[in-house]
């Protein structure tokens, strides 16, 4: 039985991601994300030695951590976790000190050039409150993203997590992300010829 309290999360099945970047574009359009910031993006890596080379796509966004470093460090309590487990920024309270941006181990925050405050993925709360999916989920052509209530064992996301092995980014940091990955080559070694 689902609990009354919701905990929104997302599963990204990288087997289905083709790197089309529709998530990045739709997010930018939906949320008015400025040119030099990203709420949602796709990292690409190439692995292997020619001719056995593979390109991996790893879509990324705010991990909406249960133990969110950005919330811990915000000196004015502008960053907070709402009742549904979504990490948000109160843009009227934010002083733009940038500490949360630096403190996010996933580089998921940026300084909104127009508003001069920290900005990040909101899981499109404005859409979700109307019963819609986040823009990146709605527009994913490979249906690589599943969004829903992690507290509801019957939800599609909970079922997907049960059936597929999932990972999170940087589990060593103890942030307890609510974004999960299926078959992702994550927690990889650093770039430029890492082995």
């Amino acid at each position: 039985m689902p609990t009354e309290k919701k905990r929104y999360g997302m599963v990204i099945d990288t087997r289905k991601c083709v790197g089309c970047m529709s998530c990045t574009i739709s997010c930018k359009m939906e949320n008015g994300v400025t040119y030099d910031g990203f709420r949602s993006w796709v990292d690409m890596t190439e692995r292997g030695v020619f001719p056995r080379v593979k390109r991996n796509f790893i879509p990324k966004l705010c991990n909406h951590c249960e133990n969110a470093p950005c919330v811990t460090v915000c000196p004015v309590k502008a960053s907070y976790i709402n009742a549904d487990g979504v990490v948000l920024v109160d843009q009227k309270r934010c002083i733009g000190c940038g500490y949360c941006i630096v403190a996010c181990p996933y580089s998921a925050r940026y300084l909104h050039e127009g508003l001069k405050v920290a900005d990040k993925c909101t899981f499109c709360v404005h859409r979700v409150s109307m019963g819609l999916e986040p823009a990146c989920v709605h527009n994913c052509m490979g249906k690589a993203r599943i969004f829903g209530d992690l507290n509801d064992p019957l939800s599609e996301i909970s079922q997907y997590i049960t059936k597929n092995g999932v990972q999170t980014l940087r589990p060593d940091l103890g942030t307890n992300p609510n974004v999960f990955y299926v078959d992702a080559e994550i927690n990889k070694l650093p770039n430029k010829g890492g082995k």
Partner: peptide, 16 residues
């Protein structure tokens, strides 16, 4: 196995 980052986004730090 070699790993090469092709496209990686790192949101810029606002600290200058």
């Amino acid at each position: 196995m070699n790993t090469q980052d092709v496209y990686v986004v790192v949101n810029a730090s606002p600290w200058n």
